[in-house]
């Protein structure tokens, strides 16, 4: 009796593909392994409880969660607008929303300063009218983070709304639901996986944000110095501590990827 039909063996992977693939994998893994090897694990806990580190950890947690909240409240309606409403200039709006995704963060910081800085387009009238200055405040950090994180969230949610399709919305409408009810009861629940993965992506982006923050919000312990800014400042004087702090963010990244993998695959499979 013949054994089960086997697919023809594809043969050995050719070296011309295998070698660059291994180089690529090494390039991605080696720096992280070096970081792990070089970390003074014994002093880790003591360093994490230092006031400057505690402040930066707390500030990073606070601002990244505020950023996610901002994305949920403002980004969800924007995603809905892009996915469900036909209007002139929709393609243009989507393109504009995507720009911060590829913009160098330091350019984002300069742009934010030009708009909200003390001498900025909005910042100057704001300061003259209300005496409010945005830079150097925790609000500026959240503003910078929201600017760079929002596109990740909006694109994820818009994609989820599009893949869910408008048919259920149409059914809800024929049953007499108005658009707000439809959004709440039909569109949003169907897009929930996108909302979750978008929020996680935005959160991760916010947690790692450095260039726009240090350019726009500045760098001061307790008010604007987030973990990446602290790592950068620390690297100048105490590289060992900088590596320890980097480990913390690396651990968070690994957890995020672990959490996202399931969501992401579910999202892609639909």
């Amino acid at each position: 009796m013949p054994t089960a039909v086997r697919a023809p063996s594809p043969g050995r992977p050719p070296l011309v593909l295998l070698v660059p693939a291994l180089v690529a994998a090494t390039l991605l893994v080696l720096p992280l392994v070096a970081l792990l090897l070089d970390t003074p694990w014994r002093g880790l806990l003591g360093q994490l409880t230092e006031p400057a580190v505690r402040q930066a950890l707390w500030l990073s947690a606070l601002t990244s969660l505020a950023t996610v909240a901002g994305c949920l409240v403002l980004g969800t309606p924007l995603a809905w607008l892009l996915a469900r409403v036909e209007f002139r200039g929709r393609a243009l709006l989507r393109a504009v929303v995507t720009v911060p995704l590829v913009l160098p963060p330091v350019v984002a910081g300069v742009a934010l300063l030009t708009a909200f800085g003390r001498a900025g387009l909005v910042g100057e009238p704001l300061r003259e009218a209300f005496g409010v200055t945005v830079p150097y405040t925790t609000l500026a950090v959240v503003l910078a983070h929201t600017f760079v994180s929002m596109p990740f969230y909006v694109l994820a949610v818009e994609g989820a709304m599009r893949t869910a399709g408008g048919r259920y919305d149409d059914v809800a409408a024929t049953l007499g639901a108005d658009r707000w009810t439809t959004f709440r009861r039909v569109t949003l629940p169907l897009a929930l996986p996108g909302v979750v993965s978008g929020a996680v992506l935005a959160w991760a982006r916010s947690l790692g944000e450095f260039g726009a923050t240090i350019t726009f919000a500045g760098n001061y312990p307790g008010t604007t110095q987030t973990m990446p800014s602290l790592i950068y400042s620390t690297l100048q004087g105490d590289p060992e501590l900088a590596r320890t702090l980097s480990i913390v963010l690396l651990a968070v990244s690994v957890v995020v990827i672990g959490a996202l993998r399931g969501r992401w695959l579910v999202g892609a499979g639909r």
Binding site: Y136, I214, G218, Y220, T223, T224, Y232
Partner: peptide, 15 residues
């Protein structure tokens, strides 16, 4: 108290 600590002196000057 300063509002920000910049990474080098030219960044301070730029502010």
């Amino acid at each position: 108290e300063p509002v920000s600590l910049e990474v080098d002196v030219k960044a301070v000057l730029a502010r």
